[in-house]
Amino acid sequence: MGKKRKQAEMEPHSTEKVEKEAPLRPQRTLLGWKEMSKNGEPLSSPVFRNKEKVLVTSSRRIIYRYRHLMLNIVSLLPHCKKDSKVESKASKGGTLNELVELRNCSCGLFFECRKQKDLYLWMAKCSNGPSVKFLVNAVHTMEELKLTGNHLKCSRPILTFSTNFDMKPHWQLLKEMITQIFGTPKDHKKTKPFYDHVFAFSILDDHIWFRNYQISVPHNEIDKVDRGGLDKMTLVEVGPRFCLNPIKIFGGSFGGQTLYENPLYISPNQIRALGKRKKAGKYAKKIKAKKKRKMHEESNPLEPDEFAGIWKE
């Protein structure tokens, strides 16, 4: 809803800006250009500047696959800082918060690997924002050869969200966090001025699925980008792929009051235990089945075959 209104007022605004640009140059400030309102006066509200920085770390004994996933994410986020591995989360939020603050970051991504198989991802807005704990499934890293796309290293991604992010409050919150963490700040020094990849975040089956595509527009169409050129646009997947299953949302960063709990969540430990229990009865089942079969055969014996000796001669 909010988006529509913004879009409506965006278009006239931007065209106006283009026209205005020529006669009078906007004033420069330390932070860039001073924004002009429609009347040519500077806006009353301070200029918004996205200064998010993300600290990316992992727990110790993370396995290579998840480490590669982390490195891929580092390569996708020019505004992130990678830190060395942290001793497992025994001492919990405190150290991590300190670390994030120490590195001057505003968000944290913490990859926690447990039992050499399960990956949990913590996404936190630091100092006092909320934090989320996800279970990460279906991980494919960028190194996989079936993902054939490639794009500029620090270009800004276009973020696409499926509309069901606006359905429930916790999804809304997650959407806001994801835009702040995964969106590259506009005037970040490392960014390149072109847009050649797109992130897709979709909610399916109460999981958030992440995909990263390269946008490839045919080469001869680049000079004149009319609608026809955009229609021929295709996407090639670059990777990584992963699927986030939200477990809990906390009020503080890396801990605090629980705001949301996933009612459908089953921990991988439970799933494994269940599988084992199912397998455990195998022998007993076999014996039982054999007995049953025997009884069945005894109770209804086979009739003598009238054609039994037909080929004897």
């Binding site: 918004f48 924002g129 909320p130 991604p157 276009i158 696409t160 809304q172 919150l173």
Partner: peptide
Amino acid sequence: KLEDIAWPKDIDWIQKLSIDV
């Protein structure tokens, strides 16, 4: 929390680059 962390409503789309589909 959403109100807390949300960016101001009137920022340009170019800052966010997010699209709902």
